[in-house]
């Protein structure tokens, strides 16, 4: 696999009045060219913090990316890039779309101009060429009458259309990596499907690798090649989409899978909800972060951090249950069969 992004031991801290919040605690992963990797986990687990850190979008001194974190784009160290190289990386090599298309576009600038900005900056096009290209991009994301809508202001477009504009803007310079931070969360379900289909289509067309940040397992099932499950700023389980859905080993992943309402024969069963809250990220954490909420919790879980165990070339999990001495437990799959 041709590796485009390599992240090792990424650590991000927020300096707040209450103290240092260690939002991302040593996340490592790789991304291949044209591959789709999903980050999944509940709110505050460090998904977005990780995604933004890749482009160094966090502004110091409030947010600190620890110095021993490694982010390599195509072999080049992003953390050591100077201002100029960083600006040419953003939008050109790696670009990002955000959760809320209502607030992510500048209300006082036409969408065309907002798309043109990147084209003029990174590809050196003049105004007329950039405008032509912006219209092409709008056509590509299936905005109706692109020649006219290129001069529209964001408020004149619907939410779904604005997210398409965001996608057009992000893909305008044909980046190698697109980071999509919950791109469909703010949209209603029918529009969600349209936007995802569009992303899928463009991805194959342009061979863009995608990092998809989401908490929607349904989205992942249709869309991602690989998944990493995050909890309290760490990756607790990773694998191909198939492995995560069919052979998950981590109790937290089980809980996530269990939370998806099944299209059951009877709709009378209660929806599953994982009890408790994630640990306070200000406090030091030297044992399994999920211990307090885990129904399989053992003594060791509260004392030591589990190592990442490799189950197959792609499937890895950080859980004491994988230790040779651990008792055999009834997994989520065994229970569901009953």
């Amino acid at each position: 696999m041709d590796r485009i992004l390599n992240v090792e031991n990424l650590q991000v801290s927020f300096h707040t009045y209450a103290g240092e919040v260690r939002a991302v605690r040593g996340v490592s992963f790789e991304l291949g060219r044209g591959e789709t990797l999903a980050f999944v986990g509940e709110s505050g687990c460090g998904k977005t913090a990780t995604a933004k850190a890749i482009m160094r979008l966090w502004k110091p001194p409030f947010v600190e990316i620890k110095s021993d974190s490694v982010v390599e784009y195509n072999g080049e160290d992003v953390m050591k890039m100077d201002k100029k190289r960083l600006q040419s990386l953003r939008g050109n090599d790696i670009s990002m779309i955000f959760q809320d298309p209502m607030t992510s576009l500048n209300p006082t600038m036409t969408v065309g101009k907002q798309i043109m900005e990147g084209l003029q900056l990174h590809r050196g096009l003049n105004k007329a060429q950039a405008r032509e290209e912006a219209i092409n991009m709008l056509r590509m994301v299936k905005i109706p009458v692109p020649e006219k809508n290129v001069d529209s202001y964001p408020h004149q477009l619907s939410g779904g259309m604005r997210q398409r504009v965001m996608i057009a803007m992000a893909l305008a310079c044909q980046p190698s990596i697109l980071i999509a931070d919950e791109p469909t969360t703010a949209l209603d379900v029918t529009i969600q499907a349209q936007v995802l289909d569009l992303l899928q289509e463009l991805k194959t067309q342009l061979n863009t690798a995608i990092i998809l940040v989401t908490h929607d397992l349904g989205v992942i099932a249709n869309f991602a090649d690989r998944v990493q499950v995050m909890y309290a700023g760490q990756v607790v389980e990773r694998g191909t989409t198939k492995e995560i859905f069919n052979e998950a080993k981590h109790p937290y992943t089980w809980a996530l899978l269990n939370s998806v309402p099944a299209l059951a024969t009877e709709n009378k069963q209660e929806l599953y909800a994982l009890k408790g809250t994630p640990p306070d990220l200000i406090l030091p954490l030297n044992h399994c972060p999920f211990a307090a909420r885990c129904e399989y919790c053992m003594g060791i879980c509260r004392e030591q951090m589990p190592e990442e165990t490799t189950l197959s070339g792609t499937h890895k999990v950080s859980c004491w249950l994988e230790h040779p001495n651990a008792p055999k437990v009834e997994s989520f799959y065994d229970r569901r069969k009953k």
Binding site: M55, L57, K83, Q87, S88, L89, R90, G91, N92, S95, M96, F98, D100, T103, S104, L105, N106, P107, Q114, E117, G118, L121, H122, M166, M169
Partner: peptide
């Protein structure tokens, strides 16, 4: 603090 400023930054603008 607006989101679109972040968008602009992610676009690579100075």
């Amino acid at each position: 603090d607006q989101d679109y400023v972040l968008t602009a930054r992610a676009k690579g603008l100075s």
